[in-house]
């Protein structure tokens, strides 16, 4: 494999892995706090699925990089500016409606991505995606169902999800960005075309928002930077909590 291709693939796996890890950690913060016991278990199930995807993707990233970094090393020994996750994933939970909106916007992207990535020319990515897509199909069913219930629900639930949509909309553009490295992966049939993902995402989001009787915010200026390591202040706090134990007790084992 050429060094350029290798570098591009490493970056690609890292971005996907980091996004899953950070979002999975965010959802895990609901453990013991969700509005209903059943929903508590549902949210933490999704969190575990996402951390599972992150493990596979970060392990693969470390393997491609070839510098002996494993999943734990990548997850626990990098600081904010080395993380490559979408800014959407690191946004705080706020209320349940806000969490559901964040999750739905992400899930709608992830289900389109992994569905296509399962046919990737890279057999490892294809394998990871084939496993992930089954879980992500359930995630999007869960978050879409809730968005419809809350949007088409009471005045309070409706106001909260409408507010979250406005608040989070500017973070959705980053999911469809592309750079030169990714262009080579798209051309090689390794990564799906972000433009195609955007079309499919728009269709899905529009259908669910309509059923939820919510207005789609207008596309305006979009936040960017997460994919290059420029993050909001929230990620530092998240990593401080997530990385505390391995930082304080290096090489601790179960």
């Amino acid at each position: 494999m050429s060094t350029d291709r290798q570098q591009a693939l490493f970056g690609y796996a890292l971005r996907l892995g980091d996004t899953s890890l950070v979002l999975g950690h965010r959802l895990s913060e609901w453990c013991g706090h969700a509005p209903e016991l059943e929903e508590d278990i549902a949210l933490t199930n999704v969190a575990l699925d996402l951390v599972g995807h992150a493990r596979l993707l970060l392990s693969y990233a470390g393997e491609i990089e070839g510098k002996g970094r494993d999943e734990d090393r990548l997850a626990y020994r990098r600081d904010v500016f080395d993380y490559r996750n979408h800014l959407l994933a690191e946004q705080p939970n706020r209320d349940f409606g806000h969490t559901i909106v964040r999750q739905f916007l992400h899930d709608s992207w992830a289900v389109e991505l992994y569905g296509r990535l399962a046919a990737s020319a890279d057999p490892t990515l294809a394998g990871i995606a084939a496993k992930a897509v089954k879980e992500v199909r359930y995630h999007v069913r869960h978050s879409a169902d809730w968005l419809i219930r809350l949007g088409d629900g009471t005045d309070v639930s409706r106001a909260r999800v409408a507010d979250a949509l406005e608040r989070l909309w500017s973070y959705t553009g980053e999911m469809f960005e592309r750079d030169a490295a990714e262009d080579t992966l798209v051309a090689a049939g390794i990564a799906p075309d972000p433009a195609e993902l955007r079309t499919a995402w728009n269709t899905r989001v529009a259908a669910v928002l309509e059923e939820a009787t919510l207005d789609r915010p207008t596309d305006g200026w979009m936040q960017k930077g997460g994919r290059r390591g420029e993050h909001s202040e929230h990620l530092g706090y998240l990593l401080a909590e997530m990385q505390f134990l391995p930082r304080a007790y290096p090489d601790a084992v179960w």
């Binding site: 209903e36 016991l37 059943e38 278990i41 549902a42 199930n45 359930y138 869960h142 169902d145 219930r149």
Partner: peptide
């Protein structure tokens, strides 16, 4: 048993609570 707002949510919750 579990609590759910309707049958569809009951199936989803059952999936999460009892078939993990």
């Amino acid at each position: 048993s579990l609590h759910a707002a309707d049958a569809r949510m009951a199936l989803d919750n059952a999936r999460d609570v009892y078939t993990r």
